[in-house]
Computed example of a mutant assay.
Amino acid sequence: MSDEYAGGGLPDDTAGEAAGMCGNLVEFGFDGSLEGVFGEGADFVLLGEGEQTLLELVKSIRDGAEDFASIRGLGWMKNGMPFRTAARPVMRDLDAMPLPAWDLVDIESYRRVWLEKMGISL
């Protein structure tokens, strides 16, 4: 695992704080219309593989940045208009990513919401 991804690249004491810094995010892999998601309340859209994009976004917000044009794979409202940066290259070395922290996820709640969204009732 690379040092950049270890702990999300943020000190442990700021990781929880960072989770709330970005406002409303649209999930990774989004490739639809930016106008629609911003109309629904999104603040940022992570385009394509968003892991590195999210890390750079959180660090930028934490550091007080107001312009995010250098972050590849990101969409947001800029001067009242939807704006997107260049696509981020596809990650080739998946072993550089940490394993998911499943211990931090309420699996039953996640499962219930997923089943509802998929139209599956038990």
Score class of each variant (00 low, 15 high):
residue 84 R to Y: 04
residue 65 A to H: 15
residue 6 A to P: 02
residue 15 A to I: 15
residue 70 S to W: 14
residue 12 D to T: 01
residue 120 I to F: 03
residue 2 S to T: 08
residue 67 D to C: 11
residue 110 Y to C: 00
residue 42 A to Q: 12
residue 38 F to Q: 10
residue 101 A to K: 12
residue 72 R to V: 07
residue 41 G to Y: 04
residue 74 L to K: 14
residue 22 C to H: 15
residue 118 M to Q: 05
residue 10 L to K: 03
residue 105 V to C: 03
residue 6 A to D: 09
residue 117 K to W: 05
residue 69 A to T: 11
residue 100 P to W: 00
residue 82 P to W: 10
residue 54 L to W: 10
residue 36 G to F: 14
residue 71 I to A: 08
residue 113 V to A: 04
residue 92 R to N: 07
residue 1 M to C: 04
residue 62 R to D: 15
residue 111 R to Q: 00
residue 122 L to N: 01
residue 51 E to D: 01
residue 38 F to Y: 08
residue 48 G to K: 09
residue 79 N to H: 11
residue 15 A to Q: 12
residue 120 I to H: 00
residue 85 T to Q: 03
residue 76 W to Y: 14
residue 63 D to V: 09
residue 96 A to R: 06
residue 101 A to N: 05
residue 86 A to K: 08
residue 1 M to R: 02
residue 63 D to R: 02
residue 24 N to H: 07
residue 53 T to L: 10
residue 60 S to P: 07
residue 34 L to G: 07
residue 103 D to Q: 15
residue 51 E to C: 06
residue 18 A to I: 11
residue 22 C to W: 14
residue 27 E to H: 11
residue 121 S to D: 02
residue 55 L to A: 15
residue 82 P to H: 05
residue 108 E to T: 02
residue 119 G to Q: 00
residue 89 P to T: 00
residue 24 N to A: 13
residue 68 F to W: 15
residue 45 V to R: 04
residue 3 D to I: 09
residue 12 D to W: 12
residue 47 L to T: 06
residue 35 E to W: 06
residue 122 L to D: 01
residue 108 E to A: 11
residue 72 R to S: 11
residue 87 A to L: 06
residue 4 E to Y: 14
residue 56 E to S: 12
residue 45 V to Y: 12
residue 6 A to H: 03
residue 110 Y to Q: 10
residue 17 E to V: 10
residue 108 E to Y: 08
residue 8 G to M: 09
residue 2 S to V: 04
residue 89 P to V: 01
residue 115 L to F: 09
residue 70 S to R: 10
residue 68 F to A: 15
residue 32 G to P: 08
residue 81 M to I: 11
residue 57 L to C: 05
residue 25 L to K: 10
residue 18 A to S: 10
residue 101 A to D: 03
residue 112 R to E: 04
residue 89 P to Q: 07
residue 4 E to Q: 13
residue 113 V to R: 11
residue 46 L to R: 11
residue 70 S to C: 06
residue 122 L to S: 02
residue 118 M to D: 01
residue 41 G to A: 05
residue 21 M to A: 08
residue 24 N to C: 12
residue 80 G to T: 07
residue 36 G to R: 15
residue 92 R to D: 09
residue 50 G to P: 09
residue 85 T to W: 10
residue 12 D to E: 09
residue 43 D to W: 08
